[in-house]
Design a protein around this nucleic acid. Structure first.
Lengths: 296, 296
DNA sequence: CCTCCTCGTGGAATCGATTACATCCGCTGT
DNA sequence: ACAGCGGATGTAATCGATTCCACGAGGAGG
């Protein structure tokens, strides 16, 4: 593959000049520029990003480590991130942690080895040493959706609190009093936060949140099913089930249908995270939407 | 950040020795190895992948350009690819073409600039000049799911033909005679291929495939809805609708439900590509499954 | 007419690794 | 005892770009 030297030779100038043309730097004569451009065209030359990165100390690449690619919420997130990054001339390398701390660590490590310019993470657990160290070392870093308490890193997230409050108000207005929640893993901030918000919102109406109405899920569909089965088996099942994420909501839907119950006549179903798929389920699941648009 | 020189200094050896230890090359004395390892540990040294790549001419990175990240089929594909690659010590950079040739081209270009070791593509269109050139230049390359006719690049795909045949046989056995298809874009090979396979399978039973029963979709949910609306508006609507991909099947499902029809009593619905989501739709869509497992 | 600036350009150092080649040292075989 | 060999290690070239610095030419100002 042709290198900058070949271009220089072809154009009859020095490599310095070629580089200057390519980065439209300082002063280059019109004729020189023309000849270089012609040579580039003729040889089909493309600059080697690896060499460039080594010299300039920047890769124009962002790392994004998400907890689960198969979760539409994160897929959508990844798409948005890539879109914005591309507009700014950056690339994004996506790492899928699959909710596994060891995988998360692996990705953070390789991304750091590649000297990415910045790291976006939605932490699966409390934070691996590698990540904490990176944060301390000053690697540009942002947490998305989830975060690690006590670590001084900016967080991008949608505040679920008010949305949850609105939801509970709505349900209360419909006359529902027995509300249950399928919670996320306690290791994640969003897992805990949504339960807290839910309990708080219920409290505002003087409603209790009995332990039996808190099911432990893991953000996967299966756990939603399992927990819902448990709810339905109670002597006094909840009137509404609130799932802390979309995947668990789908699982809940399955369980409800397996019991021959109908939504919303027999039991209510609500979810955090809206995804395009919900409109295809029957009936559509009520959801709290979170946008990924460019904020203004 | 500490470099190999710092490690060498700390360990009291030359950079060459450090490099040898790190790549467990040739002969290094036990003591030297020990001291180097200690120094690495002490400094928290991590080799710079960029510099390494420049020197060795390999990035241990694969590029994967897919047509639509939001399509679960491709998401799943990406996950599998990454998994296998990781096991072999490779990373994967995913590019989302969003069914847009220009985006596809952009990603192929930047991936090539980054000197990836290999490229996996599921082409959106007939193939951009950049890709054809890369193929000709001998870039290790593989097409997945879709391909470009006439280009000498290995293709990985599941042969839909027999699956489609089986499906048609099944439907014929149930007594259905009027079968329609929602096709994919004609620019993609899979788009055309599935229609051909369908027509051929029908032909084996002496069934026709009238033009009115071929709807042009674009692999997106909306087009599935639109096409299905069309089918339902016909004087003699089909008994079964076959969607060439999962997203269009979901659209079709919506349209069917919007008309107050039930599946499969009133109309049959089948789809290429199985995805976990189908089990959550009501009723579950019949689908042709395609695995991504490691082949043995 | 001479000095001084500016503009365009090339030479060479540099980024952080890998690796060919040279060197040195201690053994072994005769 | 000495040639020769092989193991351990260091020196320096190299990968393909960017960029600092020096240098020559030409124009402006005194």
């Amino acid at each position: 593959m042709a290198g900058i030297k070949d271009v220089a030779a072809e154009a009859g100038v020095s490599v310095a000049t070629v580089s200057r043309v390519l980065n439209d730097h300082a002063s280059v004569s019109a004729t020189a520029r023309e000849r270089v451009l012609a040579a580039v065209e003729a040889l089909g030359y493309r600059p080697n990003a690896v060499a460039r990165s080594l010299r300039t100390h920047q890769t124009r690449t962002l790392g994004l480590v998400i907890s689960d690619v198969m979760n539409p919420y994160f897929t959508e997130l990844a798409r948005s991130v890539e879109e914005e990054a591309r507009a700014l001339g950056y690339s994004v390398i996506i790492g899928n942690a699959d909710e596994r701390p060891d995988l998360q660590d692996h990705h953070v490590t390789t991304l750091l080895d590649r000297r990415i310019d910045g790291l976006l993470v939605s932490p699966t657990d409390g934070g691996s040493p590698r990540m904490l160290e990176a944060a301390r070392a000053g690697t540009p870093m942002v947490f998305v959706d989830r975060w690690i308490p006590g670590v001084d890193v900016p967080v991008v997230r949608s505040d679920g609190r008010s949305a949850v409050r609105d939801l509970v108000a709505h349900l209360y207005g419909l006359g529902h009093r027995r509300l249950a929640i399928i919670a996320g893993p306690a290791a994640t901030t969003t897992g805990r936060e949504r339960v807290d918000a839910f309990r708080e919102a219920l409290g505002a109406y003087g409603l209790p949140l009995p332990a039996a109405y808190i099911g432990q899920g893991d953000f996967q569909a299966d756990s939603g099913r399992r927990v819902t089965e448990g709810f339905l088996g109670l002597a006094e099942p909840p009137e509404v089930v609130f799932a802390a994420d979309n995947l668990m909501a789908l699982g809940a839907l399955d369980a409800v249908r397996a019991h021959g119950l109908r939504v919303p006549e027999d039991i209510g179903l609500a979810a955090f995270d809206d995804i395009p798929w919900f409109v295809h389920t029957d009936p559509p699941v009520t959801a709290i939407a979170r946008g990924h648009g460019r904020s203004r």
